[in-house]
Every structure is written in structure tokens, then in C-alpha cells.
């Protein structure tokens, strides 16, 4: 455990808290992509099957349970809550997210640390997480204005993987750890946010409302 890793996980948790606060207090999920949230449920379920096979950890186990519970809660709100579901921008959430799942599954089938059920699903979850933000970014681009909570949510979600990159650099030098699969996927995942980061920081510096061109 190092500071980058701890900060990354807390940032990830914070992003989810921001999203839940937005949904619960404003009773609105405007600007949030249900497709991205669906993908996160799939990511967490396929990655955290090891909850059943690995010994409990005081740090990892609670995080895994929280990520599973909160992602399912968010999807539940967006689909079934009688007020929240009416605020969902269904017509703008146009990304064909099913087309992300098959390529990630094929990639996981061929590129994995070990050809076992758990390891292939783990690889699948790493690949899918890398691209799961795409429907959300497409939805934001079609939004004329993005509320602060939504902007902060996406920023924290991007910052989390960027901090993992620092963690991996640290671990490479301090612990001699080399793990190509999460590194490359994590690099792709962070790179997808580059455009968003640029406009987020620009709007923050100019004290303007966030808008993606």
C-alpha cells in the first residue's frame, strides 16, 4: 500500500458518493449515462467474484462490497425510482454499449494472466472498465450544460485511474512489480479522459460552467 493507491481508491469512492448525493438530493440523474452505470455493475461483478475464492482482506473486501452495492443501487435508482427515472436522458444516451462487451470478452479470452474462469473474467473486467466511460462522455458532449455534481463525478472517476498510474509507477520502482494487462488498460482508460480533463480544468480556472464542445 502506498499513498497513490490509497488516494486513488478514496477518489474512486468519492466519485461514487458524489453521484449518489446528486441522485438522492436532487432526485435527478440528468446527465448520467445508464449505459455506463450498467457497464460498471458488470465490471464489478466480473472482477469481484474473487470475494468467494480469496481470503478476506480488511482493506479490499469492504471496498469491493461497497463498489458492488453502490453500483447496483445507482442502476436501481435510474431504472426504477419513480421520480429519478423520469429525469434520465434516454434519448441522448445513444452509445451502443453492447458493442463494447463482446470485444472485451474476446480480448480477455486471448489475453489473460492464466486461462481460468476467474482470471478471464478478471481480465474482461479490466478491459471493460477501461472503455465503460465512453457512453457517459458521449452523453456529456450532447448536453448543453453540465451540472457541477455531474462534472465533479466524471472528473473524480478519471482522477482515480490517473492516480493508479502513479501507483503502478511507484510499485515498479519500489516493489519491482510488472503487470502489463492493468497497466495498458489503465493507460487507455485515463487517456479517454484527456479531453474532458482539459475542458474541466479550463472551466474551473475561468470560473465558468462546464461545457464540452
Amino acid at each position: 500500500m502506498n499513498a497513490f493507491r490509497l488516494l486513488a481508491d478514496l477518489t474512486h469512492l468519492l466519485s461514487i458518493i458524489i453521484l449518489l448525493v446528486k441522485i438522492r438530493t436532487t432526485k435527478s440523474c440528468a446527465g448520467i449515462s445508464l449505459k455506463t452505470q450498467d457497464l460498471y455493475v458488470l465490471v464489478f461483478i466480473s472482477r469481484y467474484l474473487d470475494l468467494f475464492t480469496r481470503p478476506l482482506s480488511l482493506y479490499n473486501t469492504p471496498f469491493k462490497l461497497v463498489f458492488l452495492a453502490t453500483s447496483i443501487t445507482i442502476v436501481y435508482y435510474m431504472r426504477y425510482h419513480k421520480v429519478v427515472k423520469q429525469t434520465y436522458n434516454k434519448d441522448s444516451d445513444t452509445f451502443k454499449h453492447y458493442f463494447l462487451i463482446l470485444p472485451c470478452a474476446v480480448l480477455a479470452f486471448f489475453i489473460n494472466p492464466k486461462f481460468t474462469f476467474i482470471e478471464v473474467l478478471w481480465s474482461f473486467s479490466i478491459y471493460l472498465e477501461a472503455v465503460a466511460i465512453l457512453p457517459q462522455l458521449v452523453l456529456l458532449q450532447s448536453s448543453s450544460n453540465i451540472d457541477n455534481l455531474t462534472g465533479n463525478y466524471v472528473f473524480m472517476l478519471g482522477a482515480y485511474r490517473a492516480l493508479y498510474l502513479l501507483n503502478w509507477i511507484y510499485r515498479f520502482f519500489a516493489e519491482d512489480v510488472v503487470r502489463w494487462i492493468p497497466w495498458i488498460a489503465g493507460l487507455v482508460q485515463t487517456a479517454l479522459y484527456a479531453d474532458f480533463f482539459y475542458y474541466y480544468i479550463k472551466s474551473w480556472r475561468n470560473n465558468e460552467r462546464l461545457k464540452l464542445p
Binding site: R5, D9, H12, D50, R54, N60, F63, K64, F67, P113, K114, E119, W122, Y164, N167, D176, V177, V178, R179, I181, P182
Partner: peptide, 10 residues
């Protein structure tokens, strides 16, 4: 350098 997956991360 280990070749096992990074299972100690989230």
C-alpha cells in the same frame, strides 16, 4: 518481477 495478476488491487 511477478507475473501473477495484480489481485491485491481493486
Amino acid at each position: 518481477a511477478g507475473s501473477s495478476p495484480l489481485k491485491d488491487e481493486l
